[in-house]
């Protein structure tokens, strides 16, 4: 029985070790600046926790096997060893806190001290503003247009059946709203900071782009901001990652990361349609 346990735990450890480099199923292709940093941190985390995991499982197996065979020799009466306790307390503390420290910069870069990013805003001139709004069960994306200012929205004017602007209840009387572009698919220029504004109209949704290693809940009553930086041209899936009701599983949208001029053309086209 002891041997069986050892083998089972060795198998467990072995398989885990195998799947780690095998990458049969792994993180989807990275497509944003944070994604690359995140993957590096993933690797560190898996390495450290993996070593701990394997060490623990193998140790467990060996002990179970070895000490269940000794029939003759009596067990020791050891009540513990303070030195050892101290050792592994400090060891794990250092490991875990070290992990936290190495992972922290990524988080800070994505979320900390985001200046109100309007394109005219000097200290943040380069950021392009997008607002993503979660609605049961669809995503709407809004671009402030040349005016670089989002127009008001008004719940009373919301009419989902019309889709587009009226689905967000865009207030036509507001001058700033005149040049707002509302779409069902998200377009972003590559290699540019994105100042993302997340909102929700009914319940909590969550804006999840696996390829960007990015996720953030969209909460009704809040406007949540985060910074994104796409690095690879392509089309990606935006999923909803917070249970939002019956259609949760089919609430998704496409994210097109395109070259700057493609983006400008697309936006200009939208503006044109609007007039």
């Amino acid at each position: 029985m002891g041997l069986a346990l050892l083998l089972a735990l060795l198998l467990l450890a072995g398989l885990s070790i195998y799947f780690f480099p095998a990458h049969n199923w792994w993180l989807p292709a990275a497509a944003s600046s944070t994604a690359h940093a995140t993957d590096a941190q993933f690797f560190r985390s898996y390495l450290i926790m993996g070593v701990i995991f394997v060490a623990a499982q193998v140790a467990l197996g060996l002990v179970a096997w070895h000490f269940s065979r000794r029939r003759a020799t009596p067990a020791s009466n050891s009540h513990g060893h303070n030195g050892l306790e101290l050792l592994w307390t400090v060891l794990t503390a250092v490991l875990f806190l070290g992990l936290q420290a190495t992972g922290h910069p990524i988080w800070a870069a994505e979320r900390f001290d985001l200046p109100e990013g309007t394109a005219t805003d000097s200290n943040h001139a380069d950021a392009i503003q997008v607002e993503a709004t979660g609605v049961q069960f669809a995503w709407y994306f809004r671009y402030p247009g040349p005016g670089a200012k989002f127009g008001h929205t008004d719940p009373k004017q919301i009419d989902a059946s019309q889709g587009g602007e009226s689905a967000l209840g865009l207030d036509a009387t507001d001058p700033a709203a005149k040049d707002d572009v509302v779409t069902g698919e998200m377009y972003l220029p590559v290699d540019r900071d994105v100042d993302l504004n997340l909102r929700a109209q009914d319940v909590i949704h969550s804006f999840f782009v696996p390829n960007m290693r990015f996720k953030q809940d969209a909460v009704p009553g809040l406007r949540i901001r985060a910074r994104l930086h796409p690095t690879v041209i392509g089309t990606y899936e935006i999923a909803c990652a917070e249970l939002c009701g019956l259609g949760h599983y089919k609430m998704h949208a496409k994210l097109h990361v395109v070259s700057q001029q493609e983006f400008d053309q697309w936006l200009a086209g939208k503006e044109a349609d609007k007039q």
């Binding site: 993180l27 941190q41 985390s45 926790m49 988080w107 969550s206 999840f208 990652a241 917070e242």
Partner: peptide, 14 residues
Amino acid sequence: PILAQPAMDTHLHD
């Protein structure tokens, strides 16, 4: 401890 890092949890949450 992997989930406990906000940066990792950004991808793994839910």
